[in-house]
Design a protein around this nucleic acid. Sequence first.
DNA 1: GTGAAAGCGCTAACAT
DNA 2: ATGTTAGCGCTTTCAC
Lengths: 350, 350
Amino acid sequence: MATQKELAEIAGVSAGTVSNVVSGSTRVSDHTRKKVLEAIRKLDYRPNLIARSLKTNRTNTLAIVIPEITNPFFPKLVCGAGLAAREHGRFLIVVDTDEDAALELELISILQSQRVDGILLVSATGDWNVGDNLALLQSGPPILCLDRVPRGLNVDSVSVDNRAAAAMGVAHLLSMGHRRIAVITGPLNLTHENERLSGYRQALQRAGIKTQDSLIWASTFDPRAIEEACHKGLLLGSDRPSALFSTNGFVALEALRSIYAAGLRTPEDIAFTTIDEIAAADFFQPAITSVVQPIFEMGYRAAEALLERIEKGDALGAPRKERLSPKLVVRASSSFVHRAPSRGRVSNEG
Amino acid sequence: MATQKELAEIAGVSAGTVSNVVSGSTRVSDHTRKKVLEAIRKLDYRPNLIARSLKTNRTNTLAIVIPEITNPFFPKLVCGAGLAAREHGRFLIVVDTDEDAALELELISILQSQRVDGILLVSATGDWNVGDNLALLQSGPPILCLDRVPRGLNVDSVSVDNRAAAAMGVAHLLSMGHRRIAVITGPLNLTHENERLSGYRQALQRAGIKTQDSLIWASTFDPRAIEEACHKGLLLGSDRPSALFSTNGFVALEALRSIYAAGLRTPEDIAFTTIDEIAAADFFQPAITSVVQPIFEMGYRAAEALLERIEKGDALGAPRKERLSPKLVVRASSSFVHRAPSRGRVSNEG
DNA sequence: GTGAAAGCGCTAACAT
DNA sequence: ATGTTAGCGCTTTCAC
């Protein structure tokens, strides 16, 4: 691949002048510019950004690190961040950690070594105080946590008010007349899942209802674990909760699978509400009530905030924790249906 | 951020020795190694990959360029490619073009300037002969086209046998007794969509059935366009096709929306089969018959093939066109149901 | 307006 | 085994 030096020779000018044409920093006469552009065309010249970055100490690149690209939640986040990055003339690269904390650490380290200008992190790690990796993150280009805000990482963050989101959904179920409401969560070592569980407790407490451990189904992102938790919970028979609240879309889809597999219907046998819209949501009959997060906006806003931090650095002051508001979309799955105790039943019919 | 020079000073050795410790190329005595490692820890040193790449002329990075990260098809591709890249010690970055040909070109150009070692391209551009951008792609790091194989880009490619995939699906509908089969496609300027249409024609021809233009619903990736095409086609009343074949998962989901919105059922009112599994497929009642592509494997194989090209270069010979085989998964939506002509009806009931 | 030259951080060939 | 040095391709003073 051609270099500026080669261009300079062909165009009969100095390398510095070529650089001025390419990056447009200094004024160049129309005549020489033309000659240089001609040479560029002839040699298929592409500026070597590696060399430029080494010199200028910036890459014009932002990275977003996500745990699981196949979970439809994250692509939406990426889209928002991508738009903001582009609007600010930056390039956004996406990296997938496969929900693996060790891989996440390695990839972040590479990105830092790559000298990206900043990193948007949706961490698979709930607590960065564990281990001695924290120092690595504190030095280097700015990191902003989005969606998930791990403990021990004192950086900017943009996330949804998770506690309010859950409280909102559970309060809605309460308002529909439900009193025996179960919650199913993802891994509780993740702060946002924890916050959502706490929102569930809060809503019940405000309604004067005592939380029961048997109604808190703490699970993981493993479909089998979710199925197991649901199966156990749904087997309660006439003691079965009248409503189930899921703390995220991935778990929700698996939970619905279990509910249907058990031959139960929403909302007749068990009412259902979840945080996040589930995939192909409009095909569900009846439609699923959801607490909707502004995912795209969260990505967009996060990239904006990260860029501000990059530009201003410490002048921006201490880490800024931004929270966006979710909103409730009421549909049919959360209704209250009077139920005779005897109706409770579990089957494996498809 | 610390440099090797600074490390050298602290450790009381030369910069070259530090480099040897960091990159492990030459043997270093345990004693000096220890001193250097100590300094690395103390200064939070992260090697500057920019500088390394400038020197070594490789970045250890592969890029995958996809048209639309929110379409669940592409994340699966990314996963496969990511695994292969990791297994070969490379870093994979993902870039989204938003199905925009101009943006795609710009992003590829940046990646080339970034000197990634190779690019996996799922192009939004059907024909690279148009315009004068071809030269840009031919020079620079190797590109491999996957899934979609645009015209005019003479590079390695890995894709599915699209013609066979469509022929397989349509042949299945024929075997179920359907004779009047419509097809709905994405944009036909994309070669893979074209190949699939051609597979549809082939299957009908083999069965001795003449294709009718009114049964070929050429659409785009715009949901409204798909809806319109379906609406028009489904309005045919008693003349309505007895089966609909969709050439991809995105279109399929929108088509099903239209079918249901028209108050029709699969397969009773219109049988349905599609290439690709649709999102939340197992929730559809009856389940949707699909021609399934080996998406993950395609991504994996593509990254492998690209790496071979990177290692061996022209020694590998002319561009290699690899085709993977799809397979048919028969479910309930494709059955044949005898239909009284009068049953045809269109409504807007939800 | 243009050219000459230094240097970004690193690797690798060579010298010791 | 370790130090010295040149140079990757670019930007950016500083002269002219």
